[in-house]
């Protein structure tokens, strides 16, 4: 299989080590070496379908910080199968998510990526008639073990939904809700938590003067950042994001992506996205799901520029899905 299969109408006359060059150092690319090699010159547009992603990496901030995939995984799934009643939605998913990294799940609609995401904080428990086989581990502990308190788990594994879902309460009460239900009633402590989390979510400067106002008065992008701040308030280790920017305009999306990059310092982030540019921009690792199976997982840059599987390549080049 060659990656240079698509027509090249604007092939540069001077051969330069472009993104589609099958040079041997691409195959042996390591973390520090890949980015400069991939960077095309300004006059040189990407020449294959895969090339468009290579262009993304020229500005990638991920270069020095790709986490070591060999360290003890924060989240792990072993042969995980999931059923909605009779219908099997996930087939033997095995995956490791290293701590303090961003992992993106991509794949066509209905491929099971959101279902898999929701097994990680047991939100699927809410749906009647679902069943799970195999193992899902958080910090090495089986999260479906009978002695696991799902309330405790969800505090540690936060979730941000596709549609921002602020509670019909004040901005303050929205962020303070998690610690409040966990037993923190001290108004001063709650105030500190709210400030810290809003700052982390890059929302503090916009809302600090109107914390008592309704959260529903915020714009869509602000609401989504509020939901992220709200998740941070329970002091989680992991943030699961289910298409967090799919309903936002480009500017708000960019802010969310910046935020994800910031949060990576302290949290393990798993993000489901339909937007492959987004996956390429924000994530360290990318997993491609198709028809309930995990087809391929790898370092984002590698997966987007040199996918191992034909299915992955077909999907990310837009041949289907």
């Amino acid at each position: 299989m060659t990656l240079n299969s698509s027509p090249q109408p604007e092939t540069p006359s001077v051969p330069t080590p472009g993104p589609n060059n099958d040079s041997p150092d691409m195959n042996t690319a390591n973390k520090s070496g890949v980015v400069p090699k991939l960077r095309p010159t300004d006059e040189q547009p990407p020449t294959t379908a895969l090339g468009q992603f290579a262009k993304l990496f020229q500005n990638s901030r991920n270069e020095p910080g790709v986490p070591n995939p060999d360290q003890a995984p924060k989240i792990e799934a072993q042969d995980l199968c999931f059923f909605y009643g009779e219908k099997q939605a996930l087939f033997n998913v095995t995956i490791k998510v290293p701590p303090r990294s961003v992992t993106a799940f991509i794949g066509p609609s209905g491929c099971g990526k959101s279902t898999f995401l929701r097994t990680l904080n047991r939100m699927n428990d809410i749906i009647e008639g679902t069943r799970l086989a195999g193992k899902a581990l958080f910090d090495g502990q089986d999260i479906y073990a009978p002695n696991v308190d799902v309330v405790q788990l969800r505090k540690k594994v936060g979730m941000v939904f596709q549609k921002s879902t602020p509670f019909p309460k004040s901005i303050f009460d929205n962020v303070a809700y998690g610690p409040m239900i966990a037993g923190q009633r001290n108004r001063r402590v709650l105030g500190e938590i709210v400030e810290t989390c809003l700052k982390r979510a890059a929302l503090w400067n916009e809302v600090k003067d109107r914390l008592a106002e309704s959260a529903l008065a915020l714009s869509g992008g602000q609401q989504q950042r509020l939901c992220i701040a709200r998740s941070l308030a329970t002091n989680p280790d992991v943030l699961l994001m289910d298409e967090p920017a799919s309903a936002l305009d480009p500017a708000s999306t960019a802010r969310i992506e910046d935020l994800i990059f910031e949060l990576k310092q302290n949290y393990t982030i798993v993000i489901v996205t339909h937007n492959m540019q987004q996956a390429a921009r924000v994530s360290d690792f990318t997993a491609f799901f198709f028809e309930g199976r995990l087809i391929e997982i790898g370092e984002t840059q590698t997966l987007f520029t040199r996918p191992k599987e034909k299915k992955t390549e077909d999907y990310i080049t837009g041949r289907f899905g």
Partner: peptide
Amino acid sequence: HASLALGA
């Protein structure tokens, strides 16, 4: 769901 996901 949002409330449950926050550990309520």
